[in-house]
Amino acid sequence: MAKKVLKQLIINRDWCKGCGICVKFCPRQVLELDGKDKSVCMRPEACICCMMCELRCPDLAIEIIIGQGGQEEDE
């Protein structure tokens, strides 16, 4: 299967309340809370596009856009 590649990780800073759920459960420590207690994407290259931050975000503030990475066909 083609590897999913992160195109963009959008965080709506006006909606994020800094609960830290996305930071705690990210399997690759991609996200961090900044000085204003808002989630920021620090290591986009490590993202495996599991989507769990977007699915669990109680503030609906995260949107992951997956790009085309390599072959699209399944083996």
Binding site: K17, G18, C19, G20, I21, L55, R56, C57, P58, D59, L60
Partner: peptide, 10 residues
């Protein structure tokens, strides 16, 4: 912040 109801909505 962190309320589960937001996740249910999601």
């Amino acid at each position: 912040p962190g309320c589960g109801h937001g996740t249910v909505l999601n």
